[in-house]
Design a protein around this nucleic acid. Structure first.
Length: 566
DNA sequence: CCACCCACTTAGAAGTAGTGAG
DNA sequence: CTCACTACTTCTAAGTGGGTGG
């Protein structure tokens, strides 16, 4: 399939706001109907088995499946679940079941555990059959036709019902996420196309033909009232083009950033408080890659903040700390309730301004009380069309990667990769990308450690053997002893190499404990930087991007620009 | 302005498949 | 061949930011 190259995208259909001309798809795929529990599996209340009505039973299974999850130990999860569960009960059930503490889901839990064991224990052939069935569904529902191209859909399945799992201290955790009916779903496709057929006995909420948006189907989720969309996979032209544009905006910022920095530094001395706050907020966003920090609905969501929504309690000023002047200590929960902790030396003027912003305020007051993200973005847009707060993250992340990669040395492939990963981790640290340490982390480190020890031992033995061989050769040098020395030398060399590689691998793993090298960084790093680096240092692209990533970045991997610089 | 609506990107966790050592 | 572990994929929550209308 021939596609326009990124350079040609600009002139393409981006001007008029239309996202496509034709769009045809099969509609989203619904999760299977609820399968009632067999009669020998019981829910117990107050020690007695209780046969639940189907709707109540289904919700009970959601909880039962999560019994060994930390969520179920949290009181707000329990309370939210119980309240919503009771809504699904019959009058009689509601009368009978009044306390979660008297509910016993362990039998149901065991039933599902056994079931998953059974599934694991299936024969190869049975598993193959299941896989085939799944492939068939993906083949049928997982693709659409957009402007004559067959494109992969990102999420073609309707989200199944379950219990809401918020991140952090989410006030709505445990609430029932209801089953979505076709009657709630809006379909978006082109006028003349084959309209998706709703499941038997059902109809869609609405079928529309709006080509100014990119989604194929949408519905409103009941827990928070948010919109949910079925959209294309990142490998699609539509998403790829958008991604490319994002990096082009970031590159444009690179040309302007010095001017913008000069301007916000000027703002620090402005007589208006609002302007000063704007200047300091931008400084944080630029220097620390903080997120913009939109306001969010209190008590509806976890208490997290970004730059503009920082509160006085989130920073501590130190005139002097650790031998450095004007230190600001940040401690707050950001997106996904990931903790941001940082001690940063700032310029005297910034420090003075922060003091001013905090004067006569309570800890829970906004630090930047005169500004918000809309105001900030409007201001940024005046400096450069298309510039918003989030562009700084893309710009700073990509710039950091480029700088790190520019100072690389050569060596073994493993050494190059370690350096590459380190450059990536520098970005992850900048963006505060973290993850919970994997449960098996310590163990896997130990395994590597053991491997290293084993290799070291082999090496010791080999060295000893080499020494002996050399001795023997010295005593009476023959062709045979010379060959032996050569052979032993080769063995030692090979083992040394293997040991070194193992150690490199171990270092990499260790450094990867909490600093995520997952998918997050991919959102900020212009793939052309990495592709150019691979070419320059003769590293196969598969070593740094897996299949999914290569699909996503096909537009960059195909690029002809040999010596791309961000 | 502000509140709300909507569409889209970004994010870590969870789930699954593949792989390599024993 | 099996099983444990890892690497990859999927899932969906949680952000950003534009628009609109009062």
């Amino acid at each position: 399939v021939s596609r326009p190259k990124p350079g040609e995208w600009e002139e393409g259909n981006s001007n008029n706001g239309n996202k496509w001309t034709t769009l045809e798809h099969k509609g989203p795929l619904f999760p299977p109907e609820y399968e009632p529990l067999p009669n020998n599996v019981s829910f117990f209340y107050n020690g007695n088995p209780v046969k639940l009505t189907l709707p109540a039973e289904e919700v009970a299974t959601f909880y039962a499946k999560m019994l060994d999850h930390e969520y179920t130990t949290k009181s707000s999860f329990q309370e939210n679940f119980f309240t919503d569960w009771r809504e699904e009960m019959s009058v009689e059930e509601r009368e009978q079941i009044k306390k979660l503490s008297k509910c016993d889901f362990t039998h149901i839990n065991k039933y599902f555990l056994d079931k998953s064991e059974e599934k694991k224990a299936m024969t190869k052939e049975q598993k193959q059959v299941l896989k085939e069935e799944n492939n068939k569904l993906t083949e049928e529902y997982g693709f659409c036709e957009l402007d004559g191209h067959r494109e992969k859909i990102g999420n073609f399945r309707v989200e199944p019902p379950g219990l809401f799992r918020g991140r952090g201290e989410h006030p709505k955790m445990g609430k029932l996420k209801k089953r979505i009916q076709p009657e709630e779903i809006t379909i978006n496709c082109s006028k003349g196309s084959n309209i998706p057929v709703a499941p038997k006995g059902h109809r869609w909420r609405k079928v529309q033909h709006d080509n100014t948006v990119t989604w194929l189907a949408s519905w409103v989720e009941n827990v928070q009232g948010n919109f949910k969309y079925v959209m294309l996979n990142p490998s699609s032209k539509l998403k790829g083009e958008k991604d490319w544009q994002k990096y082009e905006v970031a590159r444009k910022l690179k040309l302007k950033v010095e001017t913008i920095r000069r301007l916000y530094r000027e703002d620090w001395k402005n007589r208006e408080m609002k302007t000063r706050q704007r200047g300091v907020a931008l400084y944080f966003i630029d220097k620390l890659a903080l997120r913009a920090g939109n306001e969010k609905e209190e008590s509806e969501t976890a208490d997290t903040v970004g730059c503009c929504s920082l509160r006085v309690e989130h920073i501590t000023l130190h005139q002097e700390k650790g031998g450095q002047e004007f230190m600001v200590e940040f401690d707050f929960l950001g997106k996904d309730s990931i903790r941001y902790y940082n001690e940063v030396p700032v310029e005297g003027r910034v420090f003075k301004n922060l003091k001013l912003f905090m004067e006569n305020k309570e800890p829970e007051d906004d630090l930047f009380d005169r500004i918000n993200t809309t105001y900030l973005n409007k201001h940024l847009n005046q400096s450069m069309p298309g510039l918003t707060a989030k562009v700084f993250r893309t710009f700073n992340a990509s710039t950091t990667l480029q700088e790190q990669l520019n100072k690389l040395t050569t060596g073994y492939l493993e050494e190059k990769l370690l350096s590459y990963n380190r450059a990536n981790r520098a970005v992850a640290i900048l963006c505060n990308h973290q993850r919970a340490a994997p449960k098996t982390f310590e163990k896997s480190m130990q395994n590597l450690q053991d491997k290293v020890a084993q290799k070291q031992q082999q090496l010791d033995v080999a060295r000893k053997e080499l020494k002996d061989a050399k001795k023997e050769h010295k005593r009476g040098g023959t062709e045979r002893t010379r060959k032996l020395v050569e052979k032993k030398e080769a063995v030692v060399k090979r083992l040394e190499e293997q040991l070194k590689k193992l150690q490199l691998q171990m270092t990499d793993r260790e450094e990867n404990k909490v600093i995520a090298l997952g998918t997050s960084k991919l959102n900020y790093l212009d793939p052309r930087i990495s592709v150019a680096w691979c070419r320059k240092f003769n590293v196969p692209i598969e070593k740094i991007y897996n299949k999914t990533q290569r699909d996503k970045f096909a537009w960059a991997i195909d690029m002809t620009e040999e010596d791309f610089q961000f």
